[in-house]
Design a protein around this nucleic acid. Structure first.
Lengths: 152, 152
DNA sequence: CTTTGTCCTACTATTCTTATAGGATTAATA
DNA sequence: TATTAATCCTATAAGAATAGTAGGACAAAG
C-alpha cells in the first residue's frame, strides 16, 4: 500500500502553484527546481492537473500556471482524482465486480470502512490546510508511531 | 493505492481458521475451497501467518491449523504485519529516508496523518470484530459513497 | 528568427505482485 | 512397511503497473 508518486508530486506541485505571487503564474521549471522534480516527469503531472481543470495558464502559453479555484476550495481528493479514477482499495468494492463468495465475505465491510475513512480524509483537507500546516499538529505522535513500526 | 491480495487472503484465511471447530484444526484445502483460493498460493499465505506466529499446527503436521491466540486478541494490524514490514504510505515517513527538501515539505504531515489513521484502524479491529461483522454497520454509507465515486 | 516554455505521444526500464511448479519432509494409516 | 495426504520450502515465471526518459511539434515573447 503506497501512495503513487504522481499523486504525491501532484500535491506538491499544487502547493507550489498556490504559493506563487498573485500577479503572475508559476512556471514548470520553478516547480521542478523548488520541489526537486524532473522537469520531464513533472510535465505529465502538470498535464493531468490541467486536464482535471485544477490549474490553467495565467495568460497565454508562456506565463506559467495559476489555480482555477481558491486554495480553500481545492481538496486533496480533487488532486488525487486528477491521477486516479477514484479510491478503491479492493476491487470487490466496485459495483461491477463479481465475487464468488456466496455466503458473504466477512472482510469486505472492513475494507469498505477503510475506503470511506481515506475518502473522508481526502475530502476534508484543502490545499489551504496543507499550506497552513493544519495537518501537522500531531507530528509527535506520528514519528513515535512510525519509530515503533520500524523497530519491528 | 491497493490492498495486496496476500493481505486480503491472509485476513480471509484467518477468519476461516477462527471459524473452525474448537476440537480440530482447519486444513489448507478447506480454506482454499471455502474461500475460493488457489491451494498453491494459499500455501505462501499460510506460511507467512505461521512465521508471524498467528497460527500453528493443531497436532502434528496433519491436523490443520488453529489460532495461537483468541480472535479478540488478534488485530488486522497483526495479520497485515505478517505480510508487510509495516504501514508506510510514503517512503519519506521512514526514519532512514533522506529528503532534499530543505525548506520543509508541506505534504509530509498530511501523509503522516493518513498513515496514522490507517494504523489506528488496523489496530482497533480484531478478528473477533470481523467475524461478528462489527465493521459492517455503515455498509449503506459505503455503497453510497462508492457509487458516487464510480459515477465520475 | 531564435529562444523559451508548453503540449503531446511513444517508449523503456524497473519493480512488484501474483501466481505456479516441483519436490522434500513428515505423519497417519492401510 | 508402503501408501497416501498434508505440510513445508525454494525457485521462477508471467503480468501489470509505475516511474521516468526521449523527441519533437507548437506557440508566443523578445
Amino acid at each position: 500500500m503506497k501512495i503513487s508518486t504522481r499523486t504525491r508530486y501532484g500535491v506538491r506541485a499544487m502547493i507550489e502553484i498556490a504559493r506563487g505571487e498573485p500577479d503572475r503564474g508559476v512556471f514548470q521549471k520553478e516547480i521542478a527546481i523548488n520541489q526537486s522534480l524532473s522537469l520531464k516527469y513533472l510535465d505529465h503531472i502538470i498535464h493531468a492537473l490541467k486536464t482535471a481543470r485544477l490549474i490553467s495558464n495565467a495568460k497565454g502559453k508562456k506565463s506559467g500556471y495559476i489555480l482555477t479555484r481558491k486554495p480553500s476550495e481545492i481538496t486533496v481528493f480533487d488532486i488525487h482524482r486528477a491521477f486516479e479514477p477514484g479510491i478503491c482499495l479492493v476491487d470487490c468494492l466496485s459495483g461491477t465486480y463479481k465475487c464468488d463468495l456466496s455466503h458473504g465475505c466477512m472482510a469486505r465491510g472492513f475494507w469498505g470502512e477503510l475506503n470511506n475513512l481515506i475518502l473522508s480524509y481526502f475530502r476534508s483537507v484543502t490545499l489551504d490546510d496543507l499550506m497552513n500546516r493544519r495537518v501537522n499538529l500531531e507530528d509527535g505522535l506520528l514519528s513515535e508511531d512510525l519509530k515503533r513500526e520500524e523497530a519491528q
